[in-house]
């Protein structure tokens, strides 16, 4: 599903060049549940953004579902994101002036699904998250856990192949974090590939494969939280 070969990425800030990713080789098959770990500055968020076509890379190859993703136009990138990828963010990133249902329905707006239909589908997904009675509420009236479940519903509504979650539990307490992870696990069991970025060990151990990043390189990989795998 996702194949990265020798990905390099640098940021230029003023006169300094910051080499964030120094040649990442990674292959993630369809249906995997992967977590990327690393201290801050290790490049894990950057990697996730490249995979999510939210950011571009300097050198290397990135194949998403056997399509080479490189220097495509913003319009094409938008189409690919809409078709393949659902995002879940640490800070939820719900649109503050839209209610829960409208937030969930937003990706379908960009698939030209009419309002009535997309709101109906959004209600189905809210129901699945157990939030149907909160459909008319604005994001600022909801708890963190509720907001994240709405964000997950929004990520799912476009029926993506991959869900990318950047610190999905970073802003949540332990109980809520475990609930959110449980939901992600259920989604994974339906066959959707999930990649999460986290720095919490207990969260990463709920996934099937842990990738440790250090200073822009893959340091080690652990399968099922038990066996180290050889690259």
């Amino acid at each position: 599903m996702i194949r990265l070969n020798g990905i390099n990425k640098s940021y230029i800030t003023g006169n300094n060049q910051l080499h964030v990713l120094k040649g990442i080789d990674l292959h993630i098959k369809a249906g995997e549940f992967v977590s990327i770990m690393g201290s801050s500055g290790s490049g894990k968020s950057t990697l996730l953004n490249i995979v999510g076509i939210l950011d571009n890379y300097d050198t290397g190859d990135y194949y998403l579902d056997n399509t080479l993703i490189r220097n495509q136009s913003e319009t094409k990138a938008a189409g690919l994101r809409n078709q393949y990828i659902g995002f879940v963010f640490q800070s939820f990133n719900l649109i503050s002036f839209k209610n829960a249902m409208e937030n969930v329905a937003l990706p379908l707006y960009y698939q030209n699904v009419n309002r009535k239909k997309r709101n109906r589908i959004a209600m189905e997904y809210l129901e699945r998250m157990g939030l149907s009675e909160w459909a008319e509420h604005m994001p600022n009236e909801l708890s963190g856990g509720q907001k994240q479940r709405i964000a997950i519903a929004r990520a799912l509504i476009s029926k993506p192949k991959v869900i990318l979650a950047d610190e999905p539990t970073g802003a949540l307490d332990t109980t809520t974090s475990y609930e959110v992870m449980q939901i992600l696990k259920e989604i994974n069991q339906e066959g959707i590939t999930i990649i999460i970025v986290t720095h919490e060990n207990d969260i990463s151990h709920m996934t099937n494969r842990i990738i440790h990043l250090k200073d822009g390189l893959i340091e080690s990989e652990v399968l099922n939280g038990k066996h180290p795998v050889v690259k």
Binding site: T75, N82, Y110, S158
Partner: peptide, 16 residues
């Protein structure tokens, strides 16, 4: 700007 970012991550094209 942030709303635009969210919309783009949802698949909004620049023109839209």
């Amino acid at each position: 700007t942030k709303e635009i970012g969210i919309r783009k991550s949802m698949g909004a094209t620049p023109w839209s």
